[in-house]
């Protein structure tokens, strides 16, 4: 039976026993409709006030480049560091012909939208020789860093020549990462719950072995336990962290700032554009800190190899 209750009847039936007391739920809207410039209506001005480089984004056949540019334009993202990785165990094996195709897709996007995309090379370290050749091919065409997935952990010896190559190039290595519970069926055991994905401890191992290398720990909002991640990575200054991902928990940015400081955090989206921007804007960061995370920190990394944005 439909019960659309007349508001007057509803108010009468729900009147307080304490006379004279009214909740917002029980009253007509009393606040003035007309306001001057309000925070929500000017939120886009705030969004567009910050220059932005997205340090973690992808191109794929399923996610048209036009859609990425549309989000970027909407939210004032000048440039996006993009890659096309292949997830082990999810898609086909990443053979040299496969990762070359992935990088060709990135190169195509760069040409399609000149000045908007920064290419991140994708390789599979299992194929060492072919990977180094592919790095040379892509860097020659203007790519600015490396993005790797979960074929090989970041601290696997197979990775050593790749890391050394990027030390020479003065470019950053962005690695997919994950840290969750449930390892080995243990409810409270933290670690790698994705096949062969790198966990904070793997990054620490690699970063300790190669203190001159620059590592980018992927997506604090990507489903890992960001509190665990930030605490684990606290004392390793050559591990940077991007804040991309769909999990826009309110305290994530301020927590990352507390443990990692304002110079090691990068803004990123990983396809979650609203969350990537929203979490930073909503944080307690100062204006200077927001400028750093949105733009300057990643630009400083690019600057080391002369790829910075003016």
């Amino acid at each position: 039976m439909s019960q659309i209750i007349n508001r007057r009847k509803f108010f009468k039936e729900t009147s307080f026993s304490a006379a004279g007391i009214m909740l917002a739920s029980q009253m007509k809207v009393l606040l003035p409709e007309e306001k001057t410039k309000t925070a929500y209506s000017s939120i886009m001005n705030e969004v567009l006030r910050y220059r932005k480089i997205d340090a973690h984004e992808h191109v794929s056949l399923d996610f048209p480049v036009e859609t990425i540019i549309d989000f970027a334009d909407r939210l004032g993202i000048e440039k996006l560091a993009v890659s096309r990785p292949i997830a082990a165990g999810v898609e086909k094996e990443s053979k040299p012909e496969d990762f070359r195709k992935c990088n060709d897709l990135v190169l195509k996007a760069i040409k399609q939208y000149p000045g908007r995309f920064l290419g991140m090379v994708y390789i599979n370290p299992i194929y060492g020789k072919e990977s180094l050749e592919e790095i040379n091919r892509c860097i020659d065409q203007g790519m600015v860093g490396l993005k790797v997935y979960n074929q090989v952990k970041i601290n696997d010896p197979l990775f050593y020549p790749i890391i050394e190559k990027f030390i020479d190039l003065k470019m950053i290595i962005l690695m997919h990462a994950h840290c969750g519970i449930g390892v080995g069926g243990k409810r409270t055991k933290y670690g790698n719950v994705q096949p062969n994905a790198s966990v904070p401890e793997d990054f620490i191992d690699a970063a300790t072995r190669y203190p001159e290398a620059m590592f980018q720990y992927a997506h604090t909002g990507g489903g890992g336990d960001w509190e665990y991640e930030c605490k684990a990575l606290k004392d390793f200054p050559n591990i940077y962290v991007d804040t991309s991902g769909s999990n826009n928990e309110a305290n994530m940015i301020d927590f990352a700032l507390k443990y990692l400081g304002e110079d090691r955090l990068f803004f990123g989206t990983d396809g979650s554009f609203y969350q990537g921007v929203g979490t930073i804007l909503a944080s307690k960061m100062t204006d200077v800190q927001k400028k750093k995370i949105f733009f300057e920190n990643f630009n400083n990394i690019l600057k080391k190899a002369g790829n910075n944005v003016d």
């Binding site: 939120i43 928990e249 309110a250 969350q275 929203g278 804007l281």
Partner: peptide, 22 residues
């Protein structure tokens, strides 16, 4: 309608989905 899911999620993202509409 606008919703924030505060204090679990950040306060701005739900707003951006509306205010960034063209």
């Amino acid at each position: 309608a606008f919703g924030s899911h505060s204090p679990i999620l950040d306060y701005v993202t739900g707003m951006l989905r509306i205010e960034s509409l063209r």
